[in-house]
């Protein structure tokens, strides 16, 4: 019984964590796959979403839903500006230049966040509807908010999947991921497509950062602290994919939670070891296309 409730707790918490990771990171997969840009500063957009939401809740007195929406819109607008001013200069640049630029952005994001919001983690006031918990098996119970995250993350996944597989925008994205020049040749406005995709990816990150602020603490070094996990989700899941990162996020979220509950001293040690073993066997990730 004890074992079952521990396992249930791990799976429930891990899945909720996985959904946050997925929402925050999936945009990176699509922007990297489509735009070919190693945007290591992706997490900064997630952090901005988190801070914007807390600002909306605490300073503007907005309701939870409105604050989340506001965060996505603000980050979306900011990302369009960033794409026009900075990122599009780097589409044709070397990987090194992209990495250096985004490391610069990461460092700046730490400074700006600390300047605006101070060094301590900010806490999120959840709406009454989403507080409390429901009992599961044995001693295990599931906080309502985590249940909400699981449902919401699942919905986002289905929405993205359908959106990429079924809609015209999705068809254009898939065409451009496969062959940018061909897509251009058949008349896809790649310029507009790129900025749209970049903004969508950033808004997803903001959504993840805002909704996940309860699980992934809002501190100035957020974008650095969670960078590796975002990258794992994308690298293990496969570039330009919607489904791969979902599976990768689930594996990582549940695996990491299990590690931290069962062997708290070892931290994420086993996660990293498992990662090396996995990539030794499959250097292109779980769903990576072979060349």
């Amino acid at each position: 019984m004890e074992l079952l409730s521990v396992a249930t707790g791990i799976v429930a918490t891990g899945t909720a964590y996985a959904m946050v990771l997925y929402i925050a990171a999936v945009g990176l997969s699509v922007t990297m796959g489509l735009l070919g840009i190693a945007n290591l500063a992706h997490g900064a957009f997630a952090m901005a979403g988190g801070y914007a939401m807390v600002w909306g809740l605490d300073r503007l007195g907005l309701s939870f839903g409105v604050a989340v929406l506001l965060a996505c819109v603000l980050v979306g607008v900011a990302s369009v500006v960033m794409e026009r001013v900075l990122y599009r200069r780097f589409y044709a640049r070397s990987e090194l230049d992209q990495v250096v630029m985004s490391v610069g952005l990461l460092f700046m994001s730490v400074a700006v966040a600390q300047f605006l919001f101070g060094p301590s983690p900010l806490s999120v006031r959840l709406p009454g509807l989403l507080t409390g918990s429901v009992p599961l098996v044995g001693d295990a119970s599931l906080p309502v908010y985590r249940g909400f995250l699981i449902l919401f993350g699942g919905a986002i996944f289905l929405l993205l999947w359908a959106g990429i597989e079924r809609t015209m925008l999705g068809a254009r994205i898939r065409a451009a991921v496969d062959n940018r020049f061909m897509a251009q040749a058949v008349g896809v406005n790649t310029d507009l497509l790129f900025v749209t995709v970049f903004a969508l990816g950033s808004m997803l990150a903001a959504l993840g950062g805002a909704l996940g602020a309860d699980m992934m603490a809002l501190t100035p070094d957020y974008a650095l602290a969670h960078l590796v996990y975002f990258m794992i989700v994308v690298a293990v899941g496969g570039l330009g994919s919607v489904r791969g990162p979902f599976v990768a996020a689930l594996l990582l979220g549940i695996g990491d939670t299990a590690c931290k509950i069962l062997a708290p001293q070892a931290g994420a040690f086993f996660v990293y070891v498992a990662l090396f073993v996995l990539l030794l066997a499959r250097p292109r990730g779980l769903f990576g296309r072979t060349a």
């Binding site: 960078l227 590796v228 990258m231 994308v234 690298a235 570039l239 990662l275 990539l279």
Partner: peptide, 13 residues
């Protein structure tokens, strides 16, 4: 054996 993002990620890992 990896490249690009996976290579960056493994270095950090």
């Amino acid at each position: 054996r990896t490249s690009g993002l996976a290579l960056l990620m493994l270095g950090m890992a």
